[in-house]
Design a protein around this nucleic acid. Structure first.
Lengths: 68, 68
DNA sequence: TCATTTTATACCCTTAAGGGTACAAATGTA
DNA sequence: TACATTTGTACCCTTAAGGGTATAAAATGA
């Protein structure tokens, strides 16, 4: 399967040598949210995820469903 | 810019000749949610959106950010 | 090894997302 | 045109998402 949102964010964050508190700060979201997001929580809000992804020049979009 | 999530869902729904109540039913989400989603509401929950997209063999994923 | 930094888990609190529903507006059709 | 269907907006209510924070667990590194 392709990279999950959680994995993507965690990896990009580490590439930029940022801690979770730093990422939360820059994205304008709470620390707890960043942590839940990287832990793969599914019941998160779309716009909050986009706030984080924007730091990486990315966003959420519709893609073909990847099985399993 | 590329197709928004709202537009994508609305168009695919019509292609399948479904009404909003029918889509909500099949996706297992509330009617109000489907309506807000198609109206472009940003503060929606990720997993609910995926429940709807799954009907079209799609899901939310990370994509390069489209400007404007 | 041990100290420091970072991350994960757990708690309380406030707010709003989403379900249900009613009705108005818009769209489609005979 | 008038009628039927569908969609958009507005309301109430319940629940949980997310902010803040404290602390335990894990990771890092000297």
């Amino acid at each position: 399967m392709s990279t999950t949102i959680a994995t993507f964010i965690k990896e990009r964050r580490k590439q930029l040598k940022l801690t979770q508190p730093e990422l939360a700060e820059r994205a304008g979201v709470g620390l707890r949210f960043v942590r839940e997001l990287e832990q793969g929580k599914q019941t998160v809000q779309l716009d909050k995820v986009n706030q984080v992804l924007a730091l990486f020049g990315s966003e959420l979009g519709v893609i073909p469903k990847s099985e399993s």
